[in-house]
Amino acid sequence: MAEMPLVRTVAGAIAMREDYDIEAIADVKLIVDEACSLLVDRAVAGTQLVCRFEIEPGTIRFAAAVEGFDARPIDDTTLGWGLLVSLVDDITHGVDTSRPLPLLRIDVLVRRGGSAP
């Protein structure tokens, strides 16, 4: 949780260097922030939040995952989720139960100039 500002800054820097417009840069930060807080809420204290950015020309994929207390899927009726959906071009969430602790993940995709509201 203490590293969230870092993740946010990295997200902003990537969007900036991929030449996303000024508003989209702010959006990408918000998306990463929101996705991570949805996961952190469910994470076992003291475990890691794993974030991965994949950059292809014109798209940023962001994947975040935590080890959760239980295998309930992410609640997609919350305001936070609704906000995410409105900002991204594609979003999925899932639970991997093949491990000792269930792995909760959120994957999003943001296209340059494509996520106009």
Partner: peptide, 21 residues
């Protein structure tokens, strides 16, 4: 009519992209 990108700002100001960042 839309938000500008860093490269557009750089071109507009005659700065390098790094400077705009």
């Amino acid at each position: 009519g839309r938000a500008a990108t860093p490269s557009e700002i750089a071109a507009h100001l005659g700065l390098s992209k790094e400077e705009v960042y």
